[in-house]
Write a protein that binds this DNA or RNA. Structure first.
Ligand SMILES: Cc1cn([C@H]2C[C@H](O)[C@@H](COP(=O)(O)OP(=O)(O)OP(=O)(O)O)O2)c(=O)[nH]c1=O
Ligand SMILES: [Mg+2]
Length: 650
DNA sequence: TTTGTCACGGAGG
DNA sequence: GAGGGCCTCCGTGACAAA
């Protein structure tokens, strides 16, 4: 495939994610690493699939090239005007009033393992398995070993590599210790994973009259004293930049970017675009090969071409990032949108075996859903063929389901339609959760709580980003767009982008519950045991929001009340065991109605509503892209039918 | 025109 | 000797129905 001569150096055309610059990889012999990876890979089904993907990407790049070539000078002038306008608008929204700190633990899982077993110190260590490693310590990184690399390749790179399986209990335990420190600096801190968090230290600096540099030092020292683990910190006026900064002097270092436009531009200009959260391997490749963009400065220079080639969403993201803009607000927490379970096994076309796998996965998903009292109505079957091609097949129901039996019966139908096939992975994902936590039911019937919080009542409140489901889109080859969205930092051809836009729902992490780097199973359950029942529920969501111990379960919209020890109402102390589902909902609705009454009398309802994941339309850095829903907003008075408006679902 | 559904892929930890 | 994870989020485009 390579247009260049693959002939004598074939490994150079096998692009992996492993050669990307990363902390601890400085002195690595990259050519050797590339070669070893290539040698271990070539000929494998995985490798062939990667090549297929690369070929598609190449076609895509060629199409974009052609598109560029067709532009007349007139066109370019036109797009330059559009770009300049966007640049001006973005610049006008620059907010330098906040100070954000991003904290990132160093080789977190590996560091915890070394702490737990000091004999590992000084040895190259990988956490994970022979098929995939989660992270590696800095000794191992010298050999090119890193996260997301298969263990058998890592061992080839570093024959003395020690493997340790993951222990999420431990990581959660230490993570919680670090969060206790974070909490002291910003009770609303945003945890984006077990080992990363954003803290708004504006007030700390102001109130104590200390510099952000001092706060960063103090915080890192506190973490070290309390956990014996090191971390790195980045300080900047927004989260996008803070995240970039924390990587600069990693490990065990910090970097402060002052809140001055000049300093920011100097910093960002020479920054390789790949350092920006949301620009991954593919986006980097496209921007480099199509437009010759490698740095943020170049991105700005080529802004007219960006406007010609990409969607408004992507354009905004690129331009904002190139200007060093990012989110400065503290986002509202958001609810879980999907939950999934998937398993890889050795490829087979034995149908009874495949149905058995499906059974296990349905069971696992159902259990997970029960733990969080979730009922969903969109089920997506995911398959990976023996040749690594991925397919998804979805189905939306009238009713919300949770039981294994229900899940399995629908999943079986979906699978049946695809067989025969030789598969290596089966997965199930549930989405479109009910707005409250109870049993099945007709989507038409909502409780007051769910009705109000769901946004049917006042659209502008919603976070429900995109109109549709969570599974999405088709034919990636048609558009060029990369799309970014918000959150911490992460865009890509269809992924969230970072810090830029503020708005809408951020899922500040969600981690903590399952996903967690991919080894959820034990994670979720353990976390439940560990935290719930103490004040931990807070922990879970606390990823940012409820410093006052007003626990709220993740992804449930039960309303204002939650159940202490799972049976005492947090608001009035009345006791209702979990099995009293209907009663509980009524009870919760009662508190909500009561509250609404109070709120309304003080004209504050709109404020209450906005406390949910919200819009914020055009916030400071507001690059918000979202399709805006037209909605009557801002009305102070609530008409009675507000409470009875029908929900539009099927 | 708007809204919902579905498929696919990028991204990050 | 072969072997390449698991979870969550999101945007886009195609298509159908309202
Ligand atoms: C990339 C990746 C990371 N992880 C986990 C393991 C890591 O400890 C954690 C953070 O990932 P990394 O960003 O790779 O960082 P790290 O903490 O291991 O090391 P450092 O920050 O010093 O570079 O996320 C996974 O579980 N799966 C993955 O695929
Ligand atoms: Mg880290």
């Amino acid at each position: 495939m390579g247009t260049t001569s693959d002939g004598d150096r074939p490994w150079e055309s096998y692009h992996t994610v492993y050669t990307n610059a990363k902390a601890g990889m400085d002195g690595v012999d990259k050519e050797r690493v590339q070669r070893v990876i290539y040698e271990m890979s070539k000929g494998s089904k995985y490798f062939e699939n990667e090549q297929r993907k690369e070929a598609f990407l190449k076609q895509r790049i060629e199409r974009m090239h052609a598109q560029c070539a067709k532009l007349t000078t007139n066109d370019i002038a036109h797009f330059q005007m559009i770009a300049d306008k966007r640049i001006l608008e973005s610049e006008a929204a620059r907010d330098l009033s906040k100070i954000w700190l991003h904290s990132d633990m160093d080789a977190f899982y590996a560091a915890v393992e070394m702490l737990d077993n000091p004999s590992l110190k000084g040895k190259p260590l990988a956490v994970g398995s022979m098929s995939m490693i989660c992270t590696a310590n800095y000794e191992a990184r010298k050999f090119g070993v890193r996260a997301a690399m298969p263990g058998f390749i890592a061992r080839k790179l570093c024959p003395n590599l020690v493997f340790v399986p993951t222990n999420f209990d431990k990581y959660m335990y230490y993570s919680e210790m670090t969060r206790k420190v974070f909490r002291r600096y910003d009770p609303y801190f945003i945890a984006t994973s077990l080992d990363e968090a954003y803290l708004n230290i504006t007030d700390v600096c102001k109130e104590r009259g200390v510099s952000s540099q001092e706060v960063a030092e103090e915080l890192r020292n506190a973490i070290f004293e309390e956990t014996s683990l090191t971390c790195s910190a980045g300080v900047a006026p927004n989260r996008l930049l803070a995240k970039v900064c924390s990587d600069i002097n990693k490990p065990n270092g910090q970097f402060i970017l002052p809140n001055e436009r000049k300093a920011i531009m100097a910093f960002i200009s020479s920054l390789p675009i790949r350092k920006i959260g949301g620009i991954g391997k593919v986006t980097e490749h496209i921007l480099r090969d199509v437009l010759g963009i490698n740095t943020c400065e170049e991105m700005l220079k080529k802004s007219a071409y960006l406007c010609a080639l990409f969607s408004p969403c992507s354009i905004d993201f690129f331009i904002s990032a190139a200007l060093g803009l990012g989110s400065t607000d503290t986002p509202q927490f958001s609810l879980r949108k999907s939950m999934s379970s998937e398993r890889t096994f050795s490829g087979t076309e034995d149908q009874s075996l495949l149905y058995q796998k499906l059974d296990e996965i349905a069971d696992s998903l159902s259990n997970d859903m029960q733990i969080e009292s979730l009922f969903g109505r969109t089920l997506t079957l995911k398959l990976k063929t023996a040749s690594f091609e991925v397919r998804t097949r979805a189905l939306s129901l009238q009713k919300y389901i949770q039981s294994k039996e229900d899940i399995l019966s629908h999943a079986t139908r979906l699978l049946k339609a695809e067989l025969p096939l030789s598969l290596r992975l089966i997965g199930l994902r549930m989405s479109h959760f009910r707005d409250d936590k109870h049993g099945s039911g007709d989507p038409m019937q909502k409780t007051i709580t769910s009705f109000i919080f769901s946004g049917d009542a006042s659209e502008n409140v919603l976070c429900d980003n995109h109109s549709a489901g969570t599974d999405t889109s088709d034919d990636p080859l048609i558009g060029n767009d990369l799309c970014f969205q918000d959150d911490q930092n992460v865009p890509s051809l269809g992924s969230r982008h970072p810090e830029l836009v503020d708005e809408q729902c951020f899922n500040n992490d969600v981690d903590g519950w399952k996903k967690i780097d991919g080894f959820k199973s034990s994670a979720k359950t353990d976390e439940m045991e560990m935290y719930s029942r103490t004040e931990s529920n807070v922990e879970v969501n606390e990823t940012g929001k409820f410093p006052d111990n007003r626990a709220v379960y993740p992804s449930t919209r039960e309303g204002l009340a939650f159940w202490i020890d799972d049976y005492i109402c947090s608001l009035c102390g009345c006791e209702l065991p979990p099995s009293f589902i209907e009663e509980r909902q009524e009870h919760s609705d009662y508190h909500l109605a009561e509250m609404l009454q109070k709120e309304e009398s003080t004209n504050n309802l709109s404020k209450l509503m906005q406390e949910r994941p919200i819009d914020k339309g055009s916030s400071a850095t507001g690059t918000s892209r979202k399709r805006q829903k037209s909605s009557p907003k801002g009305s102070k008075h609530i008409p009675i039918d507000f409470f009875f408006k029908r929900n539009k679902e099927v």
